[in-house]
């Protein structure tokens, strides 16, 4: 028996959760597995949900943090370092084809950001995804990740600086 609100949440936000997981994890099976994990946690947490954030923000935060954890686990499992250019994944053409319309210039940026996430702390990872991929405003990102706007700007600048230093092929960040 699931929480009575879960079905409505899934109807409204299930695809957004899938989309987030699909972007970060890169494959449909992994994304669906993550969706289940997110809604499992949501089901467990709904009775304690206090409404300080919207359901959408709450679910997105659960999904993002879960997927970033999965990505960190993948890096460890495959024995790849978390720093240095050898840890970069080259953007894969067509990887996000079902999430972006054909010819959308944002897809290159989204792939580039994903390939660089492993180099940053979890808070910066979340901020980078919100800003560069979701295209949220700095004010909204700062609220989401719990940073002041000036601190967020420093983090995003550091992300860009490091991205420029590491990128060897494809894409770019604006």
């Amino acid at each position: 028996m699931v929480h009575p609100e879960l079905e409505a949440l899934y109807a409204q936000y299930g695809y957004a959760v899938y989309r987030r997981c699909r972007y970060l994890l890169g494959g449909d099976d992994d994304a669906w597995d993550a969706v289940q994990e997110v809604f499992l946690r949501a089901d467990a947490g709904l009775s304690r949900f206090e409404g300080r954030a919207s359901h959408r923000t709450w679910l997105d935060t659960i999904a993002t943090r879960h997927c970033l954890n999965v990505l960190r686990a993948r890096k460890v499992r495959t024995g790849r370092g978390l720093s240095g250019p050898e840890a970069l994944d080259a953007p894969a053409a067509g990887d996000l084809a079902d999430l972006y319309p054909e010819g959308d210039p944002a897809v290159v940026q989204a792939l580039t950001v994903r390939s660089l996430l492993a180099h940053f702390d979890p808070q910066t990872q979340e901020a980078a995804v919100c800003y560069f991929v979701d295209e949220m405003s700095q004010e909204d990102v700062a609220t989401r990740v719990g940073l002041s706007v000036p601190t967020l700007r420093k983090r995003l600048r550091a992300f860009l600086d490091r991205a420029r230093g590491h990128l060897t092929r494809g894409g770019g960040l604006s």
Binding site: C130, Y131, V133, D134, E135, M136, S137, Q138, D140
Partner: peptide
């Protein structure tokens, strides 16, 4: 809430 992307005048994905 901002409804335009910080990079352009388009609404962002969010």
């Amino acid at each position: 809430m901002s409804e335009t992307t910080p990079h352009t005048d388009h609404p962002g994905w969010d």
